[in-house]
């Protein structure tokens, strides 16, 4: 794994979808009036006959996707995550999840990565999609995983919700890294017992990696787990990772109600005799707007510092927690807040 600041890529998803569609004629691209924002202007140019723009009508778009899937097509449906899930929830449940159809719901702009206010922030999308039987819920951490995950989800049975960052996508992983939807990935394993296990998904993986560095530098054994498939969650890897730890901290760009933290809590509670858990994420609030997403990550407790503090306090270490010094960022690079 690289270290921040990370170089960024544009349209890794849109490029990968076009590549896959060249090989697979069953793939259709559906858009809800957010074509460029969801990187599928590339698909529209490459395969105009297989591109369907449903306009601002998500309920109908999801219902059409269900009909197309019943007739042998694999619709990839694109809009912002908040509209793909909350806006059309009953349609996703009844037209896609219940009949277990191979529709891929691709929701951009997760959590507080948008300063557009609660109407545009997908802060409960993971919780909503996790609650649906048959649904696989995927979130990836960087451009390398984004590029790979498109082909990976195409081969999964049933419906998939794929949660993607919009815009400049950082490169955390080199090309030899493989995204894994069957297993949670232990990116760094503490070499000594005790300490903390950080379990992160999506945009919070970069923050968790930075927190991992700070904690290790200050003598805290730290394990870092990257979760790509939030559902079904790989319980075995998580239980193995926490076996010798004193604390678990989850990190998600999402509400702590029903998301990654809740999923990990389910696993830990059912296993019993596991370390205490702290959840980094939106603490059951709607996030007010701001000029930049970075300010929202700070204001709502989603920064690297918040992760370090949660680990430090959770382990009962003496205050103050170590200070996080963010790396310098240019317009061409990305670093977590």
């Amino acid at each position: 794994m690289r270290t921040a600041p990370f170089e960024v890529r544009l349209k890794p998803y849109g490029t990968a979808l076009v590549d896959l569609a060249r090989e697979r004629e069953d793939i259709l691209c559906l858009s809800g009036d957010l074509t460029r924002q969801c990187e599928v202007d590339l698909f529209r140019e490459a395969f105009p006959d297989r591109f369907i723009n449903g306009g601002m009508a998500e309920a109908n778009l999801v219902g059409m996707a269900g009909g197309l899937a019943r007739r042998g097509y694999m619709p990839f449906l694109h809009t912002f995550g908040v509209f793909a899930t909350r806006r059309a929830y009953d349609q996703v449940a009844m037209a896609v999840a219940y009949p277990n159809l191979p529709v891929r719901l691709v929701g951009f702009m997760p959590g507080v990565s948008s300063p557009g206010g609660p109407s545009h922030q997908a802060t409960d999308d993971v919780a909503l999609m996790r609650a649906l039987p048959n649904m696989t819920v995927v979130e990836v951490a960087d451009a390398t995983e984004t590029r790979q995950v498109v082909a990976e989800i195409a081969d999964l049975p049933g419906p998939v919700y794929l949660r993607l960052k919009r815009g400049e996508i950082p490169v955390l992983f080199d090309d030899d890294h493989r995204v894994d939807l069957r297993q949670a990935q232990v990116l760094r394993r503490a070499e000594r017992p005790g300490g903390v296990v950080l379990v992160a998904s999506g945009m919070m993986v970069a923050a968790a990696a930075a927190a991992c560095d700070v904690l290790e530098d200050h003598g805290v054994p730290t394990t870092l787990v990257n979760v790509s498939a939030i559902k079904p969650l790989d319980a075995a890897t998580i239980l193995d990772a926490v076996a010798s730890a004193d604390l678990v901290v989850t990190a998600e760009n999402h509400s702590v109600v029903g998301g990654l933290g809740s999923a990990v809590a389910d696993v830990l509670a059912q296993a019993g005799s596991t370390p205490p858990l702290r959840m980094i994420g939106l603490q059951d609030v709607f996030a007010s707007g701001g000029k930049a997403a970075t300010r929202l990550f700070e204001r709502y407790g989603l920064s690297t510092s918040d992760l370090v503090w949660a680990a430090w306090a959770g382990l009962g270490l003496a205050a103050p927690a170590p200070k996080v010094v963010p790396p310098p960022v240019t317009d061409e690079t990305y670093a977590p807040v």
Partner: peptide, 18 residues
């Protein structure tokens, strides 16, 4: 769940056209 069937039917009609 009422009001959903016509969208599915539109999907079928699109599939037939494709």
């Amino acid at each position: 769940s009422l009001g959903q069937g016509l969208s599915g039917a539109v999907g079928f009609a699109l599939a037939a056209r494709l």
